[in-house]
Design a protein around this nucleic acid. Sequence first.
DNA 1: ATGGTCGGGAACCGA
Length: 255
Amino acid sequence: MKFATFNVNGIAARQPRLLEWLDEAKPDVVGLQEIKCEDDRFPARAFEALGWRVATHGQKGFNGVAILSRFPLNDVRRGLAGDASDDQARWIEAKVEGVRFVSLYLPNGNPAPGPKFDYKLSWMERLSRRATELLATEEPVVLAGDYNVCPTDADVARPQEMADDALCRPESRGAFRALVAQGWTDAIRARFPAEEIYTYWDYQAGAWAKNWGLRIDHLLLSPAAADRMNTAGVDREVRAREKASDHVPAWVELR
DNA sequence: ATGGTCGGGAACCGA
């Protein structure tokens, strides 16, 4: 079973590229982020016609997450608990073939400090609480998504320039480190312990051509899932294509 | 030092 995460930066603009990658990479379950549309505007039929099950948690213009699956999606839950006033669509989870799979879009948090950074950190506290609940089930869980956190300087092409950015600030990294320390395995870093691996390159300033990338898309595995990890990867070549997202897919295979 | 590029949706915000 191959589980992937892909921030598409607008499903309307990315549908051809997404369909192309699905055909090539043949994942079984995919978490999408930044679909940037309401549920009824998501082109579900185009995916269903190819055999995909589709669950969305959309929002007009911004954010929005979804799950595509080759297998039935059960117990679909939308939204991250802990703040009834939060109306941003950043969390969807479902159970697929005995695995609980989450597609999450963690707030960017810039500019920092400020209210957006405060929202990021409070969102991470809520994520931590849900992650604790999920670990307690002792079931295989895959927490996949755009975390908007570079865990260490090894995940940043230009760490000095990014030091004060919300993606790299010590508060963001500390919260991510505490989350992982609950007992999660960072699948990509586990597969590539010492390599330079990025999942995002800014559209601006020729970042892709200069390989000024960031590793911010992660798949965290519960112990029961990590025990089943076969391999993991990042499909970086996708970034070079016409009309590419600024993110590329990351994935993990579980036995 | 500054501005550089996209997507959504229809002027600018978010990233």
